[in-house]
Write a protein that binds this DNA or RNA. Structure first.
Lengths: 368, 368
DNA sequence: ATGAAAGCGCTAACAT
DNA sequence: ATGTTAGCGCTTTCAT
């Protein structure tokens, strides 16, 4: 019950040495006599001393903390929503005062996506063994982005891990402009000299195409992701290329927004023009779930009549009926690598912006 | 591009006043001449000054940061290290390579549950307007819990928001024992003098029972949550009580673990003993989804043959086919209130441990 | 209303 | 190998 009054000085006195020595022991600096080191350790143990982080940060100029930023693009609200009737959720709450609505809806939507759970899991997996912990920040407005840069400029965190939900997210560029260490998940849309991890999306599209062809499907179509996002474009491009190489010049497409509903809508659109489809590549699992549901509602059998390939291998791939054949994105590994890159940048071990591209992998389940 | 070298002193010089005055302006202390105040503000603006948090924390003894702890119960140490709070960055792991297995699996499972997304959303909703941000911590082992208490004892955060995933989580008691400010989501299983927010679970069970009865269902059963958890017990108790009052003395039960799979398994068990069920109360939505899937696999119609009532009103309640009638738990509000309580405790505005109990609400959709 | 000055607890030269 | 000492940048009495 020594609530924070215990200082290095106290421990030093207890151990009969100087502050500096105790500090050395704590920080594992070599030049310490093993005998003295043990005495000091025991004194620390006995007193229950815990070093004050603020004091340490003040001199080291490091916090051993990273900001994990979930970043949107909106200047105000984001238009892509349209669904007034849906979920309204805790929508209006911050703690009652108005104005938190937009932010909260954004946060709610984001954290409902299994993708972010995997990102968090990967980041925590890297940080925790190092006794580091991420500060979670949501930045979907200009004001919120300002909070992020302020936070870093105050030295509250050593750098930022940025996961953008939209193309045109200005945050990466802002951070770089301020000279603040940052690493992105996915290549920023605008060219910015910043490190990032990403997936070989094109390769993923190719895997999906080849798998559908190998299953004997020939009347193919695809539900794409948002085509202003590199991920959306590239997955489509890879899919198309592979089909082209196999002799198929044209493939119907419908654009989705990476949400379940948009997937169902896109599929409905495709079916309207091409009722005889027998295979569809859907650019993420959430949309693939929507596709499967729509097909079932219309009495279509998956995979007997229509084969469905998803993307991500997120938790819904397993939840979905039938479980989805999908292109796996190793999100946890990528997130861990993102944290590692930032860690290296902050320590000065790495100087130049670096990209780490991961390979996708086909996971075959029951939807094909 | 003034990367952190700008201090109060610089701004003071720029404005032609003393450090103290600038500090007063920044902190909104009253006794400042309006004219001078404006001059100072302009100087801050012009220089792009950002106060150093570590320095401020060192003197105020506050970080304006809360830890958001997702806490499990596991006793087995994950072998990370047995350190006594030393810094050493020794542990070279956490790149998603083997060795992080236990912790990573826990994190992955936790963040796949839509419940936590709602908690995070609520917490962020309260904190962000105050320019505060939660530090995310995962604590499923004794070593990890040690990290949490160390973190707080170092003054890295002002207090902890604790969300336990298991009964018998020792963390709340540990925090209280150390005199560290904490607020829990849900009443701790062992009696601990700590503030918490919770739901009137019993009332929720009652709502479910009455709704099923009102729908004319008479051959009822329930899939409970883990019965070592108050939430599991209470939801069951409320359900039973309401049925008792309506004249039904006995109701078949099967225990689940709040996961989809466990829900399906429990339902299979119930059907084996009672093939003629026409209504079931399932203690959370995830399990209810499993129940619906199992019923569909067996050709049972929901709600025509079996009505299903879930609990939580989480995102799966909408995803589920059919969309679930469920007992809504206002998780976002509760999480925001939890943050508010901690905020009050930390400021000293609130002294005594306080409980805030929220009322559940029936949301009728298509599964009944 | 403003300024001067004393720390907050720690690390890192520098001296020994 | 250990101790001495000078700050890190801020808030906060205490004078004025």
């Amino acid at each position: 019950m020594e609530r924070q009054s215990l200082t290095l000085e106290d421990v030093a006195r207890e151990a009969g040495v100087s502050r500096a020595t105790v500090s050395r022991v704590i920080n594992g600096v070599r030049n310490v006599d093993p005998a003295i080191r043990d005495v000091v350790r025991e004194a620390i143990e006995r007193t229950g001393y815990a070093p004050n982080r603020a004091a340490r940060s003040l001199v080291t100029r490091r916090t051993e903390t990273f900001a994990l930023v979930i970043s949107g693009a909106g200047e105000e609200s984001d238009g892509e929503r349209g669904d007034g009737g849906e979920r309204g959720d805790g929508g209006e709450r911050g703690d009652g005062r108005p104005g938190d609505g937009v932010q909260n809806a954004f946060a709610a939507r984001v954290f409902a996506d299994p993708f972010f759970g995997r990102v968090i899991s990967g980041v925590v997996g890297f940080l925790r063994p190092r006794s580091m912990h991420p500060v979670l920040m949501v930045a979907e407005s200009a004001a919120a982005r300002k909070q992020v840069t302020e936070f870093l400029r105050q030295g509250s965190a050593d750098g930022a891990l940025v996961v953008s939900t939209h193309a045109e997210d200005p945050l990466p560029a802002q951070l770089v402009a301020e000279g603040l260490p940052a690493v992105c998940f996915a290549r920023p849309t605008q060219p910015v000299p910043v490190s990032y991890v990403d997936l070989a999306h094109r390769e993923g599209g190719r895997l999906a195409a080849e798998h559908l062809l190998a299953r004997g499907r020939r009347r193919l179509a695809t539900v794409t992701g948002p085509l202003d996002l590199p991920a959306g474009q590239e997955r489509l491009a890879g899919f198309r290329e592979a089909l082209e190489r196999a002799g198929t010049a044209y493939v119907p497409i419908a654009e989705g927004a990476f949400t379940r509903e948009s997937g169902a809508a896109a599929m409905a659109e495709l079916l309207a023009g091409h009722p005889d489809l027998d295979g569809v590549f859907v650019a993420n699992d959430l949309m693939a779930q929507g596709v499967c549901e729509l097909l079932r509602e219309r009495g279509g059998q998956v995979p007997q009549e229509v084969a469905v390939v998803g993307f991500d291998d997120s938790s819904v791939a397993l939840t979905c009926r039938p479980p989805l054949t999908t292109v796996r994105q190793p999100v946890e590994e990528m997130a861990a690598a993102m944290a590692r890159l930032l860690h290296e940048h902050v320590r000065g071990v790495r100087k130049e912006p670096t990209s780490l591209i991961f390979e996708p992998e086909l996971v075959v389940r029951d939807s094909t």
